[in-house]
């Protein structure tokens, strides 16, 4: 499910089935040197989470990305977002990010850190294969959350 009216209407009638929220945590680097790399990571994360949504759309709600810059980065905010999502009825909340910052402090957050892969330089079939490989790594995380 995506966070749009059509899917939300379906979500509200099928709440017992859609119990997982996926939140992409995106770091925006606005400096001259970091901007390009940051956009590449964002592109990768967007494509990957959209692919996950396509595969598991009956159980997963893909939230709009939670983005922050160096100065608006706050480790408490995802925690609060998680609490709110829990009270909306999502049993599990999974954060996906390419930012190392979150990989260290994951006691209370279910954060999945993935290295950013530059998809922009790949042709379509290679891209598809890489996304499928990445998905295979994510499936155990999901099934672990679902048992």
């Amino acid at each position: 499910m995506n966070f749009n009216v059509k899917d939300i209407e379906q979500f509200q009638t099928q709440k017992q089935f859609i119990d997982t929220a996926i939140v992409p945590l995106m770091q925006l680097n606005l400096s001259d040197e970091g901007m390009k790399q940051s956009s590449s990571a964002v592109e990768y994360l967007m494509t990957l989470t959209m692919f996950i949504e396509q595969q598991f759309r009956g159980r997963v709600m893909l939230m709009p990305p939670f983005s922050y810059t160096d100065r608006t980065k706050n480790e408490l905010l995802p925690m609060q977002l998680q609490e709110e999502l829990h009270s909306t009825g999502f049993k599990s909340v999974i954060f996906i990010t390419c930012d190392h910052f979150w990989s260290k402090k994951n006691e209370n957050l279910n954060v999945l850190w993935l290295p950013a892969i530059p998809l922009e330089s790949m042709d379509k079939t290679v891209k598809q294969r890489i996304l499928e490989d990445q998905l295979k790594q994510i499936i155990p995380v999901l099934t672990e959350a679902w048992v």
Partner: peptide, 26 residues
């Protein structure tokens, strides 16, 4: 596309049920 809520089904996705398509979501 699964007829339940639209996930993607896999052939023999569940080892317990050979020769069937399996939807991991539900």
């Amino acid at each position: 596309v699964c007829k339940h809520l639209g996930c993607t089904v896999n052939w023999e996705g569940d080892p317990a049920h050979a020769n069937q398509f399996f939807c991991a979501c539900h």
